[in-house]
């Protein structure tokens, strides 16, 4: 990747290592989300880890490097879409079973990846919502300048 801001961020060592670790952190977040109904973790914890992978990148390479590449509008929209999808999941439950946010899918077999009804799906929505939301919080706080301008 072309880096237009080579002097920002941390040292070369950190940047080089970051190039490897950031994907590992991201994948670990996704793993926790997908296995959320089987092991500790879930949408929120995984979402935080996904957001932290972006934060990691921002810290290592400086904020301008990331701001150039991140589409803030898309992130905002994704967050809103995830929130709407969570509410819609609840509405489907209301329509199918008569209870808001009730499980409307089969629970499947215990200990298998595709089980627990709608929980994996909700985990993924929550991951998107939390990941985008948390990173945007960091992004907006980082983009403040000490003086107005």
């Amino acid at each position: 990747m072309q880096n237009n801001f080579p002097n920002e961020g941390m040292s070369v060592i950190v940047k080089t290592i970051t190039r490897f670790t950031v994907w590992l952190i991201f994948l670990y977040g996704l793993y926790i989300v997908i296995h959320g109904h089987l092991s500790p973790g879930g949408g929120f914890a995984g979402g935080v880890i996904v957001a932290l992978s972006f934060v990691h990148l921002t810290l290592a390479y400086g904020k301008n490097f990331v701001m150039e590449r991140v589409n803030k509008f898309a992130m905002n929209s994704l967050e809103a879409i995830a929130a709407i999808l969570i509410v819609l999941t609840g509405l489907v439950g209301l329509y199918v079973t008569g209870y808001f946010l009730a499980n409307f899918m089969g629970v499947g077999k215990l200990y298998t990846l595709l089980s627990a009804g709608y929980i994996p799906m909700l985990n993924i929505f929550i991951c998107v919502k939390v990941g985008m939301g948390l990173y945007l919080v960091f992004y907006y706080l980082a983009s403040f300048k000490p003086k107005e301008g």
Binding site: L141, F144, K147
Partner: peptide
């Protein structure tokens, strides 16, 4: 708490700007 802390930090930064 995360939300409250973030909001208050943002407010504090804006207050610092002013």
């Amino acid at each position: 708490e995360l939300g409250i802390t973030a909001l208050m930090a943002a407010l504090a930064i804006r207050i610092y700007q002013k």
